[in-house]
């Protein structure tokens, strides 16, 4: 399995879907609001409804199911860990007990809750980055930081920096893959031993990766300057996103849905 398959957050796929066509500012804002909203909803069923909503968005954006599932892999350990802890440490009506450990009905509910929240968190991020180009995403961030620009905050530079960082994710993942393969062919072992041994075995991967990243940064700076980039100068853009009717409809639908979920959760 290659690393690019492992990390699916931040992998943009250019398609023409209703979600892709939304203004990036709307997408980013709604995603952020939703991310916070997940932690406001205090009941299981309304949260499940939110999950269904997220899956509808995923389907609209044509995110393949496997892509979403793969997105969960990096947080798998986190999910397992929280489930185990919640399952055995929540007090309440006992359902099952063995080896002096008790699983309670409340424990099951709380674990389900936590898992659902984590899955939602990742799903929203995967959908957002799947359907929004890094350039658009950073454009949205830049427009949110615009008020700060007046007090001398380098909003445009930071946005450009982030879009370049996102652009380099696939390149660096590919390179990490190559280095791992090269070290494996020299007899390095990345999959046995304890946590510390495994972490140590990654040093011969990280060092060449860093050296190459710095070399890349040097060359990139030259290439950017050669293409007339000067820090702090005003730049225009090829795509200037404009708010359309679809954006207002999307916002309205989301507000209604969230209001509904919220009322349900406090009933």
């Amino acid at each position: 399995m290659s690393l690019a398959n492992f990390v699916t957050i931040g992998q943009f796929v250019p398609l023409d879907t209703p979600i892709h066509r939304l203004d990036p500012r709307v997408k980013l804002l709604l995603s952020l609001v939703l991310l916070v909203f997940i932690f406001v909803v205090g009941k299981l069923l309304p949260l499940l409804a939110l999950f269904v909503l997220a899956m509808v968005c995923a389907a609209l954006a044509k995110v393949p199911l496997m892509h979403l599932v793969r997105g969960m892999r990096p947080i798998l350990i986190l999910i397992v860990l929280t489930v185990v802890i919640q399952l055995f440490s929540t007090s309440g009506e006992p359902l099952l007990s063995f080896w002096g450990l008790t699983i309670t009905k409340e424990g099951i509910l709380v674990s389900l809750f936590v898992v659902l929240r984590l899955i939602l968190l990742v799903s929203i991020s995967v959908i957002l980055t799947y359907a929004t180009s890094p350039l658009d995403l950073t454009f949205a961030l830049e427009s949110f930081m615009l008020p700060l620009k007046r007090i001398g905050f380098p909003a445009s530079e930071i946005a450009l920096m982030m879009s370049i960082a996102l652009r380099f994710i696939p390149t660096l993942l590919e390179e990490t893959d190559k280095i791992i393969k090269a070290q494996t062919s020299r007899g390095a072992d990345f999959s046995s031993g304890g946590v510390i041994a495994r972490a140590k075995s990654f040093i011969p991967v990280l060092i060449p990766l860093f050296v190459s990243a710095f070399r890349r940064a040097d060359e990139l700076a030259d290439a950017m300057e050669s293409r007339c980039f000067i820090t702090g100068e005003k730049r225009s853009r090829l795509h200037v996103p404009k708010l359309g009717l679809n954006d207002f409809v999307a916002v309205a639908l989301c507000v209604v849905a969230m209001a509904g979920v919220y009322v349900w959760s406090i009933l």
């Binding site: 943009f12 250019p14 180009s133 890094p134 350039l135 879009s163 370049i164 996102l166 652009r167 070399r215 890349r216 060359e219 990139l220 290439a223 950017m224 293409r227 007339c228 980039f229 000067i230 100068e233 005003k234 730049r235 225009s236 853009r237 090829l238 795509h239």
Partner: peptide
């Protein structure tokens, strides 16, 4: 190490964008 944007057209646009 010369590509600044993820998509072809955005990358080619980088220079003209710098020329404002």
């Amino acid at each position: 190490n010369q590509t600044v944007a993820s998509l072809v057209e955005d990358d080619v646009a980088f220079g003209p964008e710098n020329l404002n």
